[in-house]
Design a protein around this nucleic acid. Sequence first.
DNA 1: GCCATTTGTCTTGACGTCAAGATAATATTT
DNA 2: AAATATTATCTTGACGTCAAGACAAATGGC
Lengths: 163, 163
Amino acid sequence: MDHVDGILKQWNRERPDLDVGPMGLIGRISRIYGYLMREMSETFAKHGLNRASFDVLATLRRSGPPYALSPGDLLAATMVTSGTMTNRIDQLEKAGLVARAHNPDDRRSMRISLTQKGREVIDAAVTDHVATQARLTAMLSEEERKALDGMLGRYLSRIEGEG
Amino acid sequence: MDHVDGILKQWNRERPDLDVGPMGLIGRISRIYGYLMREMSETFAKHGLNRASFDVLATLRRSGPPYALSPGDLLAATMVTSGTMTNRIDQLEKAGLVARAHNPDDRRSMRISLTQKGREVIDAAVTDHVATQARLTAMLSEEERKALDGMLGRYLSRIEGEG
DNA sequence: GCCATTTGTCTTGACGTCAAGATAATATTT
DNA sequence: AAATATTATCTTGACGTCAAGACAAATGGC
């Protein structure tokens, strides 16, 4: 019994014509997402970051040396619009965590790279972040987590497959 | 193989010290959530709504006759702050979809009720919304959907249980 | 080589959200 | 009954996001 069960019962009473099976699944995903994000945001804040800045720094960090990507690359990794990415990079540049440089091969393109400070911040933040995520999934047994993860992976790959 | 697998591989190469199991699960939930919301937003837009206004109207609708709740009740149902709820109600009032009235028993409190137009809009929108949700889960078999839903329900109830 | 198209990034203006605090009415304490 | 605490809602200012479009550089067809 969770919060979503109550919602489905209300709909069943008010609109018995509707099949609320999919609504239950999607409602649970939304609700879980909300809780997870709220908790993870606190970890980001401890490092002076928010989800937006964390995502950009983390994308640069995990891309490996030399920790540099174009705005377009970052865009492809993060499900946001180009204007949003420009703004994110602006903020990170102001904070001294990334540097902007022109791409010598293509003057339209930029090269966003982690600064030394950016590298330090994201490495510490990721370590903390992983610990937070471990805590947020600790109420699942290893077995449960893997089973759930497997099903979500199949679902996600089918969603992405449709494009 | 989905988008998240690629991310985990990068982290494994760059930060082999980290246990990325939880990150995979949470990453998949986030990614799926993003896709689902993007699609559902289009359905809301067809009815002149967004997720915010849809949620408020739907909460009023499924509460049953007389389709009226206080801002505090709506707040408890929607994971947003009080200022956000004030703004949402303002917009819906301007659009003529809800009406504000004072609660005669408690002058601090308001009574937000669906107008006739609001009732019509949300009934049509919900019907459409459920169809969209059915489409968004159609790549899962009935068996898969129920299994996934069950695991998510257990996870959610444990998260909510912690408060 | 020239023109149209595409690509990569940035700009603008509007919107939804939040955190913090203001305001007013009701409950509680003394 | 007065003083204090609590509750319910709203206000303010800042921020992150988006959609639409601007702009410059690179590409492709002729």
